[in-house]
């Protein structure tokens, strides 16, 4: 799998997407489909798992930098929910590294793209990780964000 299918939930208030998009996909990484949400906290963790089950190689959620959520709490809550969901995935023998949480502000376009690219490359490297159940490894950190 060289072009892992990735679904990204991106908060309306975080990184500015207009210059990055081509339709619903990232121009530079067409394997990434972006679903825009009103706040990262809007995402129901069940949807993330559904996306994985329906054939996405990876899912990520992007919110604003921690501490700067427009709704004050959304990204912290989402970070917790993603952590929780990763533990849940692990119990179901799905590699938790396929789920990630990012945090980028309005102008952090480059940092956002770089992080998505790393995520995509890592998924490409794990190709086949879907077929062979992942051994119970340590849960991956929730995205590279501090």
């Amino acid at each position: 799998m060289t072009n892992p299918k990735i679904v990204g939930f991106v908060c309306d208030w975080s990184v500015e997407l207009a210059p990055l998009l081509n339709g619903n996909r990232l121009r530079d990484l067409p394997n990434v489909y972006v679903i825009r949400v009103p706040c990262s906290g809007f995402v129901r963790p069940g949807w993330l798992e559904d996306a994985l089950n329906q054939g996405a190689a990876g899912v990520f959620v992007t919110g604003c930098p921690y501490g700067d959520c427009l709704n004050r709490e959304g990204n912290f809550l989402m970070r917790d929910r993603v952590d929780q969901q990763q533990r849940r995935l692990q119990r179901r023998r799905i590699d938790p590294a396929r789920l990630a949480m990012f945090a980028h502000g309005l102008h952090d376009r480059e940092a956002f793209m770089a992080e998505v690219r790393v995520f995509s490359d890592r998924l490409a490297a794990m190709a086949g990780g879907q077929a062979t159940p992942a051994p119970a490894t340590e849960p991956a950190p929730a995205g590279g964000s501090p």
Binding site: P38, G41, F42, N71
Partner: peptide
Amino acid sequence: CVECGICIGACPFEALELPKF
């Protein structure tokens, strides 16, 4: 309500909706 949708993500029972999302 500011229509942020954070409660949607919180509810595990599909009991909340944002009308336009």
